[in-house]
Amino acid sequence: MREQRRKDAVWQFTTYVFILVMTLVMLVPLYWMIVAATLPQEQFIQFPPRLYPGTAFFENFAALQERTDFVRSIWNSVFIAVVYTVLSILLCSMAGFAFAKYEFRFKEPIFYLILATLVLPIQLLVIPLFLMMSQIDWTDTFRAIIIPWLANPIGIFLMRQNMKSIPDALLESARMDGATEFQIFYRIALPAMRSSIAALAIILFLFQWDLFLYPLVILETSANYTIPVALSGLEGTQRVYYDQIMVATSLAIIPLAILFLVLQKQFVSGILAGSLKE
């Protein structure tokens, strides 16, 4: 018995050490990034490095802002991601509603066609989309970044799955009260989907937020750059401004990290919903 207790203690100790080490591994790069963003360049590149924050954040930020309008890029990214998320949710929930609650011809084949594209990597689309966008003169515009991805297969899949759980009797009684099909959709179906929509919103927002290859190809003028495109160009000049780069990465990472802390439940359900398989 004592032997067992000793073994348990060793096991528990090892588990704690493992968890603590992994927690440090996950947090240290972020801490180091923040420290670097608050130090003048000279202090950052010295060896051994300084490991606690300084006070130069706003000077670094001003220097960064002078060199490239990074705030503009943040605004671009937020604008694109928010507009995309709202429009895509509307589109996907409308279509998901139809697939869940109506009978129409070719319903099954159409749905499986959409579902089949779920496994395809989106990089597949970059070349043809680039040619199409050049053709209709949409390169270097936000609509070229937003519109092609609105019809999101994950979105329609999630919405269909969840809207199936709305009782038919509820819709039928609304119909008897004289509601039109559109009223039924946005007065009954949409409000009932609140938590699924929150999860989907996070999936869609992060998808657009992290989109890199496609905007890299489409966007040309730096005033239109999204955060990833602007960041990837930051170290391109002769001298590398590490302090400014770390300010930029901090501005890209920390707001989302805070959002994650606040909306953790929705993030987790978004991850789990995105990983659903039938």
């Binding site: 992994m22 670097a36 890199f212 990465t249 990472i253």
Partner: peptide, 26 residues
Amino acid sequence: TAIAIPVSANIVAYSTVFLLLFNEQF
């Protein structure tokens, strides 16, 4: 939460942090 926090990190931004994290000199 601490271990899951990287899921919110922008791909290019975190790659940039790693670029400097693994810098040879500093």
